[in-house]
Amino acid sequence: MRALNIAATGMAAQQTRVEVISNNLANMSTTAYSARRAEFADLLYQQPRLAGTVNAADGTILPAGVQIGMGVRPSAVTFDVVQGAMKATDAELDLAIDGKGWFEIEAPNGEPVYTRDGSFKRTGDGQLVTSEGYALTPNIVIPGDTRRVTVNKDGEVYAIFDDQVQPQLLGQITLVDFVNERGLEPIGSNLFRETAASGPPNVGAPGEDGRGVVRQGYLEESSVDAVTEITELIQAQRGYEMNSKVVTAADQMLAATTQMR
């Protein structure tokens, strides 16, 4: 009976949906995390009788056919880069992107990767790095005798020294944007990798060509909405239960057929 297989695909789909929801809820406190969403597509159809064919009995055209669906499958798990709320931290190396854009990071293997998590740290050499120790690109090095660091909305990093009146420009943080941000590949640690689907990175100064600006002393919070996720979780649970009832009903029908024979 096809109903068993069809309901099984429905249960598997709802299980995938719950897994995505659970990952969203687990990352409610992850800096700059964008909520994921599971998307589904129907499977192929068996068509014992096609619409538009000629009725052999009288030669009329059939206005409708017989189409029996084979179930559902996951088609994608996507994310929209929806900016989370700005959380004030007052830490001079906490940077948030207000608008579109990504920070470029150099992975240990030299590969460029991208993040919106601006909770930067300073190494013993004064280099700006992520919490995982990956260097920010372009490289910014803060001298050891720096009293204070300021970053303006254009990404310009200045160091203030005790023996100097004017701040010293250390460099400018650039931002990267993509034609299709959904095509980026998440690799963990709040990092993403360029793919053929995302298109090549477009590097430029903050505030130019639609890119956001940099806010010092802020971090971007997760965009996960707990109420929405719980509602989705309840819907997924009900969908799983209904598909399991289909399995039970189909099993009972098969048992009744077997007893008749």
Rank of each mutant, 00 (worst) to 15 (best):
A91E: 10
T60K: 02
L95D: 14
I105G: 08
A96Y: 10
A57L: 14
A41P: 00
G52V: 05
L93P: 03
P74R: 02
D98T: 05
L62S: 09
R116D: 10
T78P: 00
L62N: 14
L43K: 01
V54L: 15
I97P: 11
L50C: 00
R73D: 01
V113E: 09
S75R: 00
Y114N: 14
Y45K: 06
K87C: 00
S75K: 01
G59M: 08
A38F: 04
L44R: 07
P108F: 10
R73W: 00
V54Q: 10
L95G: 13
Q83L: 01
V77A: 05
V82R: 12
Y114P: 11
S75F: 01
N55H: 11
W102C: 07
T115P: 15
Y114D: 13
R116H: 08
G52N: 03
P63W: 07
P112W: 11
T60F: 01
G52I: 03
P112V: 13
M86G: 07
A38C: 04
Y45H: 09
V66E: 05
A56D: 10
F79P: 00
E104Y: 08
N55P: 05
A76M: 01
R36Y: 03
G99K: 08
A96S: 12
R116A: 11
G84W: 08
G71Y: 07
V81E: 14
G110K: 13
Q67Y: 12
Q46K: 08
P112F: 09
G118M: 12
A91Y: 04
L62C: 01
L93T: 15
P112Q: 11
Y114H: 13
K100M: 13
G69L: 06
R73T: 04
L44F: 10
E104H: 06
V66P: 00
E39T: 01
R73E: 07
A76E: 00
V72W: 04
G110N: 13
A76C: 02
L95S: 15
L93Q: 10
G101L: 14
P108R: 08
Q47D: 05
I68R: 04
G84S: 07
F79D: 04
N109S: 15
L95N: 13
G84Y: 07
V113W: 05
K100S: 15
G52E: 06
V81H: 08
I61R: 09
A91H: 05
D58N: 15
K87H: 11
T78D: 10
A85H: 06
D80R: 05
G65F: 09
